[in-house]
Amino acid sequence: MPLLKIEKLNKIFPNGYHALKDVSFEVDKGDFLVIIGLSGSGKSTLLRCINRLYEPTSGRVLFLGEDLTKLSGLKLRAMRAKIAMIFQQFNLIPRLSVLHNVLSGALNKKSVLDGLFYRYTPEQKKVALEKIELVGLSHRTYQRADKLSGGQQQRVAIARALMQEPLLLLADEPVSSLDPATSHSIMKYLEQINKELGVTVICNLHFLDLVRRYASRVIALKDGQIIFEGYPRDITDEWFKKIYGEDAIEVKTT
């Protein structure tokens, strides 16, 4: 059984924009799936439909055999806990320390009251410190997260995601607001999480050389439809032009 199975997923926004058209694919455990496509091709919408930050209009999202689109309340939150997400804009909580940002990844295990008063168990604090060490930010543990550099903030976000002990990690253009060197460092962390911790990763990317370097499988979206599904080595120049348009020229990060 695949870890995640998307069946005929459609998303139509209230303004009538049809962002996803009958998208279907499968993700196996341990995959490093990369989704490519132009801006506006529906990549972010697709990720957000998986953990229901957006409500899909129709279709099924089967995670561990259960249809996520049918869940609500407690059950939905329990499933979300197993699916971590990192974002292009990092989306850390401003004014809170790195430690508390990472700890917030454990909020799904907290009662509302404990959460309101920032009460965490010593065990959770220990795990949080481990995750911070994993992303190499131990020296920043008690600093305000919003004062860190972009790359460091994304590493905090990764630590927060790991705090959830997820089975699946959704990465929405995790390196799009970072410089090339930092991009590689972040991608290496994702690779490490994928290979060593066995977390399945679905990642939106723009740069094809990053795709070739890190992806185990690739899906290309165009106007909300899947137009390519295969391995990174299969993306020929011909496919590249189909995905990005005739006039596109491949840009390389170093």
């Binding site: 953990n51 930050l53 939905l76 939150r77 329990a78 499933m79 979300r80 806990a81 197993k82 699916i83 971590a84 997400m85 974002f87 804009q89 990092f90 989306n91 850390l92 909580i93 401003p94 917030s104 990844g105 909020l107 799904n108 907290k110 509302v112 959460g115 309101l116 976000a157 927060r160 959830q164 959704l170």
Partner: peptide
């Protein structure tokens, strides 16, 4: 963003 991120962790809406 941050609200989305916390929602995505599976936290209670109040949190």
């Amino acid at each position: 963003g941050p609200y989305e991120a916390i929602k995505a962790t599976g936290a209670h809406p109040i949190l």
